[in-house]
Amino acid sequence: MRYAMAIDTKKCVGCSDCVVACQTENNVPIGYCRDWIVEVNDGTYPQLEMEIRSERCNHCDNSPCVRCCPTGASHIVEGGIVLVTANECIGCGACISSCPYDARYPHPDGHVDKCTFCFHRVGKGQQPACVEVCPTNCMYFGDLDDPKSEVSEILKIRKYKTLIPQAGTEPQVYYLI
């Protein structure tokens, strides 16, 4: 099993609903976020192009954050989901430094926190909270090893990219372009 997410930049309006939904679902303290919105504008008025991306941990196949963790708090579970076990984490910050996407943040309680792909939901067959809330329905989540999953299907028919592929992390969040 290999969980992955595909996000359609052609539909995302950057509303940040995924950000608040994640905060409430996962009790992310105010002032912190597990996901965030990037807006990229290119060109000169009125020849303009815009790309909006909802970003989060890429649950990289080749995850430097897991490798550099001295305690094993950062680890990979079923489906390739990268997790942090709070009471194994010493808060050394190594994983934060190691993530090219800055997807991790120091939780005010001391440990490091990040997107879990809503592990607690997907295990029960639910969609991640951000996927479920997105008003433009622009996020697809599922098992890449299952050719019939929504995310496999959409990646078959659409052009896509990942973020900073040069960093060699093999990200598993795909952006449909």
Partner: peptide, 16 residues
């Protein structure tokens, strides 16, 4: 002009 901004989330001074 190219403009790349985080419009929301991640307003965390330890990262940005």
């Amino acid at each position: 002009m190219r403009e790349e901004i985080i419009t929301s989330g991640r307003m965390n001074d330890k990262i940005d």
